[in-house]
């Protein structure tokens, strides 16, 4: 077995037993199950989950990731004194963090769907997209968490930056976008809007999901432009490609810092 898999194996065991991961799983499970009980229709459950996923996954992942990275600092140093290449150790640490968070999410929302099922077959791809984009967001915010915790020596500062990044992407960015489009409402903004939206991973996931939910009509003309763009093969490719970049780029920068860092 190669060294990276060995590191993942043990870190996975550690993280998956952590009470915070169990609480995260339990919360998602109870929310999904509760919504099935109250609304009874899987389409409503899916729609409500959309917002929970977009808000909750980023904040949980980034804060847990940052706290975990700082608290395992001494153990990381201990592993660095073992015959392991730094690159390998980094990949192991990263995956050992992103995988259990993804598993908790997939099981949390997935289990209720297993025995409640979906009302129509057409909702099945929606569920799949919901799960995939949730996992993608988990990886994006794990990358950011790892990057932030390696860039700052101070735990409180790191956590502060993490929460700020989340706040910016989840709330401020959309607000600014809305304000900007209101100010410039006399100009044709659809294309610049697409460009700006692509730059924010949470917005990307939101668009991907909304198009699948067929509620883009609610967004008026902009929605129609978005649907035309993101609904096509090029848009799908571009948006999932951008999500991948959001995972890979912070992760690579983090790796570079990790390989050169003085511990």
């Amino acid at each position: 077995m190669n060294t990276m898999l060995k590191i993942i194996k043990y870190e996975l065991r550690d993280v998956i037993r952590s009470k915070w991961i169990l609480i995260y799983f339990g919360f998602l499970f109870l929310i999904t199950e509760g919504m099935f009980q109250f609304s009874g229709s899987s389409s409503k459950v899916l729609l409500s989950l959309l917002n929970i996923v977009l808000i909750l996954i980023p904040i949980i992942t980034i804060s847990y990731g940052i706290i975990y990275m700082y608290s395992s600092r001494e153990f990381t140093e201990m592993l660095l004194a073992q015959p392991i290449k730094r690159k390998t150790l980094f990949s192991g640490l990263y995956s050992g963090l992103a995988l259990p968070l993804s598993i908790a999410y997939l099981f949390g929302i997935g289990i209720p769907f297993i025995y409640h099922g979906v009302d129509e077959v057409s909702q099945f791809p929606v569920l799949i997209i919901l799960m995939l984009s949730g996992v993608a967001l988990t990886f994006v915010f794990t990358s950011l968490a790892v990057l932030i915790s390696l860039s700052s020596e101070d735990k409180v500062k790191g956590l502060g930056i993490g929460i700020f990044v989340w706040l910016f992407m989840a709330v401020v960015y959309d607000g600014a976008l809305l304000f900007g489009s209101y100010l410039l409402s006399e100009y044709p903004l659809e294309k610049p809007m697409i460009a700006v939206t692509i730059l924010n991973p949470i917005d990307l996931a939101r668009i991907l999901l909304m198009l699948k939910f067929d509620i883009s009509a609610l967004m008026g003309y902009t929605g129609a432009v978005f649907k035309k763009f993101f609904g096509g093969p090029l848009g799908m490719l571009l948006s999932s490609g951008m999500l991948m970049l959001w995972i890979i780029i912070p992760c690579l920068i983090g790796k570079r810092i990790f390989v050169r860092k003085d511990f």
Partner: peptide, 11 residues
Amino acid sequence: MPQIARFPENL
């Protein structure tokens, strides 16, 4: 043997 020993809590 490092000075401070902090191991993964749940292992």
